[in-house]
Amino acid sequence: MDKALEHQFVALLEKHQNIVHKVCRLYTNNQDAHNDLFQEITIQLWKAYPKFRGEAKFSTWMYRVGLNTAITLYRKSKRTIKTQEFETVSFKIKAEPYDDTQDQQLKLLYQAVYQLNDIEKALVFLYLEEKNYSEISETLGITEVNARVKMNRVKKKLRTVLNP
């Protein structure tokens, strides 16, 4: 593939790399796995880039490829052993606000989010990224109504963690 395309892609990826980091943040539980998934998403984005026509925003397109890689294509590396799951929370939430109650609430919320299944995580991710239901349904391939119903259930589930 030509060099110009490579440079164009890398520049876009550099600018929007936070999207990839956020997907990795949600779907992995340690630094090694985070890096592995980041690598795999980058490969998949690059492989699909020649077909990217620019009809959608680059960032929107990244959400789809990122989630598809995390949920379906990525095979957890051997390094991602289950015993490391307890690291999750401390790894994910450093540098949080100093307010104790808020800190505690956030900790609980993140804990709850990490316990959701892959599909629920995808819903929460798109919600946190302020995507509307039409975008959520288009990304996941489910109807808008079903996305809304499921999202409300997940939100309820998360709220109960704080107000049991």
Binding site: V10, N18, R75, K94
Partner: peptide, 30 residues
């Protein structure tokens, strides 16, 4: 909290660091 800027542990990569990643081997299920 989610939308805050990048986290310290999520290293922002430069184009020089990103470029070689394009050509690494994929380990996808496909």
């Amino acid at each position: 909290d989610w939308q805050q800027k990048a986290r310290p542990e999520e290293k922002q990569l430069t184009s020089k660091e990103l470029h070689p990643m394009l050509f690494k081997k994929s380990s996808s299920i496909v």
